[in-house]
């Protein structure tokens, strides 16, 4: 098992950097609005959704009604619906670990799992599970640390959050290489930039995702042509074949 944990730990090091930094910011913010370490820990263990937890700080401060909270959460997190589509077969094979894998599918864990390849002598399912679990542990640790001591951090953390963007970039380079066609990448870029222009910087994710889904579906015939070659689907090495070229 140690070999699996070690492999997963190395894979998640970039997420550790980003989650600790952003988690600290969340814990500090929550603490400043009057909710201490127990609240930071509780929301990072139970909710575990980065951007939604920052929204949660505001909801708690306002004492919002439950229906409003439910609607806001649904809207902010709706993008996760599309993340799950890539892992339906992969997670189905993961047995009792499946509920946790679904619960823990954040933007960052999703990104890592899309390209993660377990080392040859490591159980792919356990490797995926440890990636998800380690990621959440960084987030919880960061939140708690931020709540307890966020204002005491001795060095300037400005810019550390770029680690998250760097992670997305690296994974994008990997995806670029894994596919023979780069058109989905351009669809993603154009949709996101268009969403910024139309809906503003603050609400780009959901409109961008809807556009991506619609455009990809319109391009289905073109993308699945023989000449474009099937990409490698995300799946643990020992899992069942997850899809392949449809």
């Amino acid at each position: 098992m140690m070999k699996t944990v070690r492999a997963a730990f190395l894979t998640t090091l970039p997420v550790m950097t980003g989650y600790l930094a952003v988690g600290v910011a969340f814990g500090l913010l929550l603490q400043k609005s009057g909710y201490g370490v127990a609240w930071a820990a509780l929301s990072s263990v139970l909710v575990y959704a980065g951007s939604m937890q920052f929204v949660l700080v505001g909801l708690l401060a306002d004492g919002s009604g439950f229906v409003a909270v439910a609607m806001v959460t649904l809207f902010v997190n709706l993008r996760h619906f599309f993340y799950g589509l890539s892992f339906i077969d992969t997670f189905r094979a993961m047995g009792r670990r499946r509920p946790y894998m679904i619960f823990a599918l954040t933007d960052e864990t999703y990104s890592i799992l899309c390209t993660a390849k377990p080392p040859e002598d490591v159980d792919g399912k356990a490797y995926f599970f440890w990636i998800a679990l380690l990621d959440q542990s960084y987030w919880v640790a960061g939140s708690i640390a931020g709540s307890l001591a966020g204002s005491l951090i001795p060095f300037d953390m400005t810019g550390l959050g770029f680690a998250m963007t760097a992670l997305f970039l690296v994974l994008l380079v990997e995806q670029w290489e894994a596919f023979r066609t780069h058109e989905p990448v351009f669809v993603g870029l154009a949709s996101a930039l268009g969403a910024v222009l139309v809906f503003g910087r603050g609400n780009l994710l959901l409109p961008a995702l809807v556009t991506i889904v619609v455009v990809l579906l319109l391009m289905k015939k073109r993308l699945t042509r023989e000449a474009y070659a099937p990409p490698t689907p995300p799946a643990p090495a020992d899992g069942p074949e997850a899809g392949g070229a449809p």
Binding site: L169, Q175, P184, V185, S191, A192, I212, L217
Partner: peptide, 15 residues
């Protein structure tokens, strides 16, 4: 189909 082709587009969006 979506599960296969969404990841590169979504990563571009996240960047």
């Amino acid at each position: 189909f979506l599960g296969t082709y969404l990841p590169p587009a979504i990563l571009a969006m996240l960047v």
